[in-house]
């Protein structure tokens, strides 16, 4: 044998999936909702989506070049942040503001804390909340079929019934299909569920966070909201709950790594969302619930380290 042999520590084989394949799986899973959003809201939505993705990718590229860091834009995480941010914006949101938000997501939320894997808050949601406090008017202005007004969730909360003040009807079927007003990606429950099913089938996410989150919220809403099935169904389909539960709360970097921790995290999300939606000033609460819970992840993990194999019921560990 003439050639030199490779040496490394075991194991010598690796699974096929990679960071990149996971990011693109999530990207693909968001496509039904994205395409529906483009159809539902038209060209304005498409421009926003493209602008956010392009800005995020470009910002990360320029930052890493300038900081002489290894280039990682091809892993797809920046593009995914851009897409998620766009799906969280109203189609009428000004493009330049969306660009500001994208830069904020990549530089302030992600890169300043060390880049991929180090951010303590979901970059897209961090940016959404930043835009919310900076441009509240534009962020909460929703137009559907030429009418600018309250989203179905806000109609329910505030009892709005005048059609000239409503962006879309608060009809359950419309809310399930997505033919209502709202942010670009949140309206179609069915499109989001198709993507979620794909993620679950590909084992990119587990059921723990989304299912427990939604279940906790449902119980909370039944207790503290209205004891009515129709009300509950609309609360579940409306707003950003499904988008948030399956695509944002499950963000690896900002959710607990321990199985028990994921359960605690999901319950916390459900309770916070319930509090914000039912007792808060706004009809929405998902994004704040998620970023607040994100901040508690290290704490949750520290108290949910699993018991090692064979040490169940042994206290001292000896």
């Amino acid at each position: 044998m003439s050639n030199l042999l490779n040496l490394s520590s075991s194991p010598h084989v690796r699974d096929k999936s990679s960071t990149k394949s996971i990011m693109w799986d999530v990207f693909l899973a968001l496509m039904p909702a994205t395409i529906f959003g483009a159809w539902n809201f038209g060209l304005k939505a498409v421009i926003l989506i493209v602008a956010c993705i392009a800005t995020c990718v470009l910002t990360e590229y320029i930052w890493q070049k300038a900081m002489k860091l290894p280039l990682t834009v091809s892993d797809g995480s920046a593009a995914l942040t851009g897409l998620l941010l766009a799906l969280n914006l109203s189609a009428t949101f000004p493009v330049w503001m969306a660009i500001v938000g994208s830069v904020f997501a990549i530089i302030i939320v992600k890169q300043l804390f060390g880049g991929l894997g180090q951010n303590f808050m979901n970059p897209a949601l961090g940016a959404r909340c930043f835009l919310m406090v900076s441009f509240a008017g534009q962020m909460t202005s929703f137009t559907y079929d030429g009418v600018t007004g309250a989203t179905p969730l806000a109609q329910i909360k505030n009892g709005v019934t005048d059609p000239s003040l409503c962006a879309g009807k608060s009809d359950l079927l419309d809310m399930f299909l997505g033919t209502i007003g709202g942010t670009i990606g949140e309206t179609s429950t069915i499109a989001l569920l198709i993507g979620a099913a794909y993620l679950l089938a590909r084992k990119v996410i587990t059921w723990r966070i989304p299912v427990i989150y939604i279940a906790t919220f449902a119980i909370f809403a039944l207790i503290f909201g209205e004891q009515d099935v129709m009300y509950l169904a609309k609360e579940l389909c409306g707003g950003g709950l499904v988008l948030g539960a399956f695509f944002m709360a499950t963000d690896y970097v900002t959710s607990p790594i321990t199985p028990k921790g994921q359960i605690v995290f999901a319950v916390l999300l459900g309770v916070l969302t319930g509090i914000f939606r039912i007792f808060g000033a706004s009809a929405e609460g998902v994004s704040y619930a998620i970023i607040i819970s994100n901040l508690l992840v290290p704490l949750i993990e520290n108290v949910t380290i699993p018991t090692p194999f064979g040490k169940e019921g042994i206290k001292d560990g000896k």
Binding site: N6, V13, R14, I22, T72, S77, G117, Q118, V253
Partner: peptide
């Protein structure tokens, strides 16, 4: 397969 991949940051 070990040499084929460069380790990248943990995404948790």
């Amino acid at each position: 397969q070990v040499a084929e991949f460069e380790p990248s940051p943990c995404i948790r």
